[in-house]
Amino acid sequence: MNTDTNPNLAAGAALWLDEAAIGILRQDLLRFARMQLRDPAAAEDVVQEALSAAYATREHFNGQAQVKTWVFSILRNKILDQIRFGVRHPTQSLTREDGSDEDVESQFDEHGYWHKERRPSRWGDPEETLANEQFWRILEICLHAMPENIARVFTMREMLDLETNEICEQLAISESNCWVILHRARSRLRLCLENNWVRSEQTSC
């Protein structure tokens, strides 16, 4: 195999990472890709491509700390390319009402106030949550439980860091529609985390 394009064989390169660091970085990249692409094989492919592309340009790094940022920016662009391709070949309409917001709607009474028993609860310490592997697994499941058309807008905003005017341009929707979709996505994700992470934590203590 050609070592110039194989980052896994690059342990000796001074500005590249050792094998253990590559392993950790690869897991972070895979999680990031899986949350957006939903297809584990496609996520593996895009991560391998990003690592290879970063390795091929490794002489541009000033140090190892930059490697992660660099690889992530390559990965972001590759995922964005795939999303753009998907938008031109849509499988789901972005504005179709899928009736799946009932759970979110039923949190409110007829006047738009929280039902007492469905009021948002106190979530635990943020840093403790972020350090918990189970939380990240549940987050991934919750993202995948979202309809793909809503999740796409959400991940473009929160994971690819696009502004809403860029998203609506890419997807040919109005900016106000984009805000509505993002609110639906956040509400659903919040509810899913509350039901599956927060409440399960509370009952297990």
Binding site: D28, P120, W123
Partner: peptide, 22 residues
């Protein structure tokens, strides 16, 4: 509204989650 104050905290937390990922 304490329910909405918690909701607000949760929105901020979710933003932090996706920052942390990167």
């Amino acid at each position: 509204c304490s329910g909405c104050r918690k909701y607000n905290e949760q929105m901020k937390f979710m933003r932090k989650v996706f920052m942390r990922l990167k």
